[in-house]
Design a protein around this nucleic acid. Structure first.
Length: 112
DNA sequence: ATGATGACCCAAT
DNA sequence: GATTGGGCCATCA
């Protein structure tokens, strides 16, 4: 068993990402109060696969890197993530790149 | 305890 | 655009 109190805040933010939108690791870290620690976000999401945090219904597939690409490139899970995103209406480039200008989730819209 | 690795990000080259 | 180097921190051997 684990005490992922730190992961909790990350999952809480990820869970707020609406369908059809994506967010970057850095963005999640910032919203979770872990600004500058984007790596921990990715690490937290990786823990989901372990099943320890399964059942939280965390839309991990809506989290991508700052380049607008899927970090799981090379892994089979990356293929799943791409399919999940496309299923939600997120359009991917021929090079599997997402236009963040269009699909990036903006919490508290309307300039701060 | 140390050292290496990682679903990252940024700036410089 | 691709590559390199520095930074952050949790997890594993």
């Amino acid at each position: 068993m684990v005490a992922p109190s730190r992961y909790q805040c990350i999952y809480r933010v990820v869970r707020q990402i609406p369908r059809g939108r994506v967010a970057t690791y850095g963005q999640i870290a910032d919203l979770a109060g872990l600004a500058g620690h984007a790596r921990q976000v990715g690490y937290a999401l990786h823990a989901l696969d372990d099943g320890a945090h399964a059942g939280k219904a965390v839309p991990w597939h809506r989290v991508i890197n700052a380049q607008g690409r899927i970090s799981l490139r090379g892994d089979y899970a990356g293929d799943i993530q791409r399919q999940l995103l496309e299923r939600e209406g997120v359009e991917l480039d021929a090079r599997e790149r997402i236009d963040l200008k269009r699909f990036r989730w903006r919490p508290r819209t309307r300039r701060v």
